[in-house]
Design a binder for these strands. Structure first.
Lengths: 341, 341
DNA sequence: AAACAATAGTTAAGCGCTTTACGGTTAGTA
DNA sequence: TACTAACCGTAAAGCGCTTAACTATTGTTT
């Protein structure tokens, strides 16, 4: 392994000078600079990042902590889009990305604690969606720079970025109400409580209330994010009396299961049953019927989070006010007006 | 931030002793050990990993390099499963995982070179699937420990692990031939050439040859991994004369598109057209009709790769012979006997 | 021509940890 | 009892890099 010293010897300068050249510090003559760069080239020198990290007090690592809830984050399209956005920005801006997916309870995860306490990263991006598993306060108490994606309950709620779950859900529910549906089944997630899901449910509730529908009298079934669990939930909802004419589903993946189950039960979607999802996963447009759903800018969420964190680290700003990205109702073929009985 | 020195002072010993305690070196009295651990506890001490890395010459980072081909790796279910397997093992065994998805051409990617040359990781896991973008030789030339997932062209082909694309494809094609299909369309991927895809095509070719079918006279269309591209490819195949009665598709995602397109064209799958995929993505069982496909143990691929790499790093072994994991044909509803005209 | 500023490069002190070499004890053995 | 061997703990060097502090040179200003 070539070291700074070897480059310095070859270029006939001190190692401090080489360091200066490599970090673009001013006050190095063009001639020296050239000699140094030549030596670097010839020796194929690349700085030892561990040494640099120690000396500079910065690792150029960004930690990404995405707790796994029901399933691996690697099977959840939304989380992946976020991750994709994060990865792009972090790498473009010259940092490394270090991923951890601790199991619950997060606080007891070795990985998690190791990462936070060893300060092996310059900053952290947290997926903060579980009221019982909040990381921000712990991380903040270590004076660790971070950005939380989701909801968090620090006093000031700063450094948080999320999508507008509430209004997205509101629109979805309003859409069904506008189509004349009154008897609407809900597919939620349980028993683990998640901020985003609660907000979506709150959106449904308020929208339906505006249409004179009492959310609390509606049939509710809980899934666990998977397609299959959505199918099961729908089967359960179909037992309700009177049978729902529409279903609000808090995630797209479960909507797929619901549509399958509805078809298997001999129902035509949307004629007999309208279904609306949430997320707008890439697949949503390819299923039959194409899914009416709420689009959320997941990739942008990741990009923004990463950019904000790096801006903070690079002192371009200190903290930032909560950012809320808008959602959008996408009308496709899985919803239709209620048929008069 | 608490340092070793502070712990040492509090425990009334030298920092060397603290270091010994923390690394379980023998010859420390139970009493001293207890005092040290107490001080560690009280101060909430956690070692600075950058300093440790510098002193030990090991970072406990494992780099994962998955080049992005047509799309982000974050949208490819197979890659994700591999990643999931890798992540699980790496974290369980106390390492950190550092992910990079360089754009092509890989060799010119800054991220890629930075990671390889700075030796910031103890070892690398490479997704090696592109003949024109081979990384192993470059990495090996840096004396960097690595494991390649896929196909690579180092002389000895050691330290490679992959699935049995050839036999999986062979079985898929044989299945169609056994059902009486003679006129079979192929949905491949192009124009970028990939080892795994070539092997699958070779499997098709040999199986069909055994059944007396000349692969070269079969209609072929190329997609680009996405669902939509699969749909387009199928539309193209349907123009062939005579129209194929079955389609072999090199990936499941494109099979989904193909099924959709077939339906849109008024064809019944499998009655009018049999379709068989490759991968067995989670969704395969949930579509209509459920997809006949070839299952590959992607997660296990990732786990094995990670375990082998760590074994090498921990000197449990040096190199290993190529590992080939078996594939399995999964019969579902998208294939049926050919109808006599 | 004196005073100062800007430029170019060096020295040396760390960053926080690991580890070798070594001194001092204590126990075991002949 | 003397000698070895196993223990326990410390001092100090060093991993490879950065960066203040410093010297020396050249250029600029009045």
């Amino acid at each position: 392994m070539t070291t700074l010293k070897q480059v310095a010897d070859r270029a006939g300068v001190s190692s401090a000078t080489v360091s200066k050249v490599l970090s673009n510090t001013p006050y190095v003559s063009a001639d020296t600079r050239a000699r140094v760069l030549k030596a670097v080239e010839e020796l194929g020198y690349v700085p030892n990042l561990a040494a640099r990290a120690l000396a500079r007090g910065r690792t150029y690592n960004i930690g990404v902590i995405f707790p796994l809830i029901y399933t691996s984050i690697f099977t959840d399209p939304q989380t992946l889009s976020i991750l994709e956005g994060v990865e792009t920005v972090i790498n473009e801006r010259g940092y490394n990305i270090l991923i951890t997916t601790p199991k619950m309870p997060v606080q007891q995860s070795d990985q998690y604690r190791r990462l936070v306490q060893s300060r092996y990263c310059d900053g952290l991006i947290l997926l903060e969606n579980l009221p019982d598993e909040l990381m921000s306060s712990f991380v903040a108490s270590h004076n660790y720079p971070f950005v939380a994606i989701g909801y968090q309950s620090l006093e000031d709620k700063s450094n948080t970025i999320r999508i507008d779950d509430y209004h997205g859900a509101y629109q979805a529910a309003k859409h069904l109400a506008d189509l004349g549906h009154r008897n609407i089944g809900i597919i939620a997630v349980g028993p683990v409580s998640m901020f985003s899901i609660s907000e979506r449910l709150r959106g449904y509730r308020d929208a339906l209330a505006s249409a004179g529908i009492d959310f609390d009298r509606l049939p509710v079934a809980c899934g666990s994010f998977s397609i299959e669990s959505g199918a099961q939930a729908l089967r359960q909802l179909l037992k309700a009396d009177p049978r729902p004419t529409a279903v609000l589903c808090v995630t797209d993946l479960m909507s797929l299961g619901a549509i399958n189950a509805a078809k298997s039960a001999g129902l035509n979607v949307p004629r007999d049953l309208s279904i609306v999802g949430f997320d707008d996963i890439p697949l949503a447009i390819h299923i039959d019927p194409p899914l009416t759903t709420v689009r959320q800018p997941s990739r942008q969420l990741g990009e923004t989070a990463a950019n904000l964190l790096l801006d903070i680290l690079e002192k371009k700003q200190t903290t930032f006010d909560p950012v809320v990205l808008p959602t959008q109702l996408i009308l496709r073929g899985s919803t239709a007006p209620v048929r008069s009985a």
